[in-house]
Simulated scan of single mutants.
Amino acid sequence: MSEILVVDDDRELRDNLREVLSAEGFDVVVAGNGDEALEMVKTRAFDLILLDLVMPGLSGLETLLLLRRQQPQLKVVMVTAFSTIENAVEAMRRGADDYLTKPFKISDLLITVRRVLEEARFKECNAILNMDGTFNSLANAIRRQILLVLKGKGRRRFMEVTRDLGIDDHTKVNFHLKVLKEEGLISQDDQKYYSLSPKGVKVTQCMNIVIDNMAH
């Protein structure tokens, strides 16, 4: 579940955004100003921040710059009135990922939030898949098949894996299993069952995300 921080001095808007986003399955936290937001970010890892551009005290732009110092990879969508669009564009030059213009439709809000979160996942997955060892492991089609078999069927013994792959050459399958183990993508327990490691689970998820994005 993605965690979103809504930062706005308008209490009614904060509450409305929390209600709408929570109904869509997001975990939503609210802050009334930039100082509150900066304190929250110190102790919680948010996936996205919806940040009002014009607020008393720290402005949205000032808050954005301070947030970027704390968490450079944090995704931020600015919320602005039509009259301050130029400032929102400036905020994007300073590191914001997108902006919404008040008043906005719920559909536009959800499209923007989901797109920014998906872009973040795509970039994260590209970084994971492009790690030398991981990339080399996935370059072989049999190794990719093994990961997908373990993802779909869970714990499997060696002979079950060979049958799932439809490969009679046990030496070949054993070699590819060894490569995946050395890269930390799979593990083998005391009962000789193979399964995806936490890293392997993440990599298989990333494979799907990257493929989906390439298809769009």
Rank of each mutant, 00 (worst) to 15 (best):
G95F: 01
V210I: 12
G60I: 11
S197M: 10
N33L: 02
E119V: 10
R144I: 10
L58Q: 01
F104D: 00
L64H: 04
E19T: 14
A81R: 04
E124N: 14
M131V: 08
S197P: 14
R144G: 04
L48I: 00
P56N: 13
K192S: 14
M92A: 11
K178W: 13
S197K: 11
V29G: 01
V173S: 01
D212A: 15
L100K: 09
L117W: 00
A96N: 04
A215D: 08
Q188W: 05
P72N: 05
K102H: 06
D47T: 06
D35V: 13
G133H: 12
R115H: 06
Q73D: 10
E124A: 10
M78E: 02
V149F: 15
V77L: 08
E86H: 11
T63A: 03
R157E: 12
F26A: 00
G152Q: 05
V54Y: 05
M207E: 02
N208E: 15
F158E: 02
L38K: 13
R155N: 12
D10Q: 00
V173E: 03
T112P: 15
A139M: 15
E160T: 05
N174P: 03
D15S: 03
L109F: 08
L180C: 07
G95R: 03
E62A: 03
V6M: 05
T80D: 07
N130L: 11
G154K: 03
L196R: 15
S107Y: 00
L50W: 07
M78D: 07
R93E: 05
I4S: 06
E3G: 05
K105M: 08
S22T: 13
L74C: 08
A120F: 04
N87P: 02
L138I: 13
L110W: 02
N130D: 15
R144V: 14
P103I: 12
L66A: 11
D189Q: 00
I4V: 12
E160P: 10
V20M: 04
F122Q: 15
R69P: 07
M55T: 03
H170T: 15
C206K: 05
S107W: 04
L109G: 07
G32S: 05
S107R: 15
D164S: 13
T43K: 13
S187A: 14
A37Y: 09
A139Y: 04
A31N: 07
L67R: 05
D10Y: 08
I142D: 01
V28P: 00
V149G: 10
F158A: 10
V20G: 00
E19G: 14
L66E: 13
T134Y: 03
V29R: 09
H170L: 14
E119K: 06
R93W: 06
E86A: 00
T134H: 15
S137T: 08
L110F: 00
M92I: 08
F122T: 01
I209R: 13
M78F: 06
E182C: 05
I167L: 12
A141C: 08
V173H: 01
K153Q: 02
V20L: 00
K172L: 14
D189F: 10
I146P: 01
L58V: 04
L61N: 09
G95S: 04
F175R: 09
G200T: 02
T171M: 00
K178M: 01
L53E: 11
R155H: 08
T63R: 09
I167Y: 04
K199M: 15
L48F: 01
M131Y: 08
F175V: 03
